[in-house]
């Protein structure tokens, strides 16, 4: 039976997903041994079974991110934080030293590039998830089993991690595949 993989992007830029696709022709080898379940790659919206490996891109910046992350923890045997945002907040966490009100005002009211918001409306639709006071890394919310640093992680590192886990050996990243940028 094929192993199952689920992926998601929380407060990320989808760069880590691009890096997953960047394993290039090895994708065909990967598809021989794994099946993608809930993931932006398959566009499956809900979990259909228990998952072997969950890949999380991005940290938690809003209430929905936390719900999705907890759902992944519930359904995945192994959860991997992929990329700097999932590991320590990354670029979105640059707002962490600044008050949330100040950030929102800068983005929608007083920022130098805000020209069209003449009525000075801050998005307030109840469907929109609430922004958290700061961006949290994934391991602050749930238990994370493995971490793959990089912005994005190098395709070789992702490949090494997935194949090692499926073959039951220890992940041993090469010097060139372990980079933080």
């Amino acid at each position: 039976m094929k192993a199952t993989i689920a992926t998601t992007s929380l407060a990320g830029c989808f760069g880590c997903h691009m890096s997953i696709l960047d394993i290039d022709e090895r994708l065909l080898d990967l598809l021989d041994i794994v099946e993608f379940d809930k993931s932006p790659i398959t566009d499956i919206k809900k979990f259909t079974r228990q998952i072997d490996i969950g890949l999380i891109e991005g940290g938690c910046c809003n209430s929905e991110n936390i719900i999705v992350l907890k759902d992944f923890r519930k359904h995945c045997k192994i959860l991997i934080a992929v990329g700097e945002c999932a590991i320590m907040g990354g670029v979105p966490s640059m707002r962490n030293g600044i008050e949330l009100d100040e950030c929102i005002n800068e983005a929608y009211i007083s920022g130098p590039t805000v020209k069209l918001n003449t009525e000075k409306i801050i998005p307030n639709d109840p469907e929109l998830p609430a922004l958290l006071p700061r961006v949290y890394s994934c391991n602050e919310i749930v238990k994370i089993d493995y971490f793959l640093p990089g912005c994005p992680p190098r395709p070789d590192l992702i490949w090494e991690a997935i194949t090692s886990l499926l073959e039951g050996r220890q992940i041993d990243p090469s010097y060139e595949s372990l980079k933080f940028d």
């Binding site: 907040g89 962490n96 700061r134 890394s137 640093p149």
Partner: peptide
């Protein structure tokens, strides 16, 4: 140095100083 010692994450809480 983090590359040399294969640092994958920090075991300490990030303080995000401003």
């Amino acid at each position: 140095l983090a590359y040399k010692y294969k640092l994958l994450f920090s075991r300490f809480e990030h303080l995000y100083p401003n």
